[in-house]
Every structure is written in structure tokens, then in C-alpha cells.
Amino acid sequence: MDISDWRQKIDELDEQIVRLISQRAEAAKAIGELKRISDLPVYEPHREQDVFNHVRAANPGPLADTEIQHVYERIIDVMRTLQRRDS
């Protein structure tokens, strides 16, 4: 494959990633609503650590575990903001 083929593949993968992130955001919004109703905090450090442990365990590479965790730190930060905004 040449560079344009790889770029097309990346574009297709990005579209899939955006759809999955949107689905994750819908789930986070639903959880945020349940937290609001139950008077639970948006920020749950133990749960976030569980997510990091899970994605590191599921990581096949080539990103190092610390790199995949950095990606998820940002995703979770955005989801936490979404939960606060919608509460």
C-alpha cells in the first residue's frame, strides 16, 4: 500500500473511532444522570483506575500501556465534563 492507501485506511478507522466514542459518550451521559439522581459524585478515581487497568490489559500494541492510558485519560476527562455539563 502507498501513503494515500494508508491515509484512506486511517480516515475509515477514524470514522469508526468517532462512532464508538459517541456511543461511549451516550453511556457516560446515562451514567451521569444516574449519578445525579443518586447524588453520587461525577469524579470516581477508583472507577477511573479500573478503566485504565482494563484498557492496559486489553492493549495489543503497538502503543505502550502508558500511551494507551494517556489516550484514555483524555477520553475520561471529556466524558467527566459531559456528565457535569448535563447534570
Rank of each mutant, 00 (worst) to 15 (best):
A64L: 15
E33L: 11
A30Q: 08
F52M: 09
L40K: 11
Y72P: 08
V71K: 11
D77R: 03
I37F: 09
Q69P: 00
I68N: 03
G32K: 06
K35I: 02
I31K: 13
T81Y: 00
P41A: 06
R84C: 00
E48W: 05
R24N: 15
L40W: 08
P41W: 02
P45K: 01
V55F: 03
H54G: 03
E33H: 13
R80Q: 05
R47L: 13
S38K: 14
E73Y: 07
E44Q: 09
R84E: 03
K35T: 05
L34C: 13
E44G: 08
E73F: 07
A28E: 04
L82K: 00
A25P: 00
L40E: 12
A57F: 10
V42M: 02
R80P: 00
K35V: 04
H54D: 06
A28F: 03
V78Q: 12
G61R: 09
R84N: 02
R24P: 10
H54I: 06
P62K: 04
L34D: 15
P62F: 06
Q83K: 09
T81L: 01
L34A: 15
D65N: 13
R36F: 12
N59L: 06
K29M: 14
L82H: 01
V78K: 07
R56I: 14
E33Q: 14
L34M: 15
R24D: 15
T66G: 14
L82E: 01
D39T: 11
H54M: 09
E26H: 10
D77Y: 06
R24C: 15
I31L: 15
E67F: 04
E26S: 10
A28R: 05
T66I: 14
A58M: 10
E33T: 11
D77K: 01
A64N: 13
Q69R: 07
Q83P: 06
R56M: 15
E44W: 09
G61T: 07
I31G: 05
P45Y: 04
D39V: 08
T66P: 00
E44K: 10
F52G: 02
Y43W: 10
V71Y: 08
E73Q: 12
R84L: 01
Y72Q: 14
Q69E: 13
Q83D: 05
A25I: 07
V42Q: 01
Q49C: 02
K35F: 04
P45E: 01
A27W: 12
Q49I: 04
F52S: 01
R84Q: 03
A57S: 15
K29P: 05
I31T: 14
A30N: 05
K35L: 08
T81F: 00
G61H: 07
I75C: 06
A28P: 02
E33P: 01
G32S: 03
A64W: 11
E48K: 13
I37G: 05
P45G: 02
L82Y: 00
S38M: 10
A64M: 14
G32L: 05
V71R: 13
D77I: 02
E26L: 11
D65A: 07
I76R: 09
H70I: 01
I75W: 03
I68V: 13
Q49D: 06
Y72G: 11
E67C: 12
E73K: 12
A28L: 00
I75D: 05
E48G: 10
H46D: 15
R24Y: 13
H54E: 07
G32E: 02
Q49G: 05
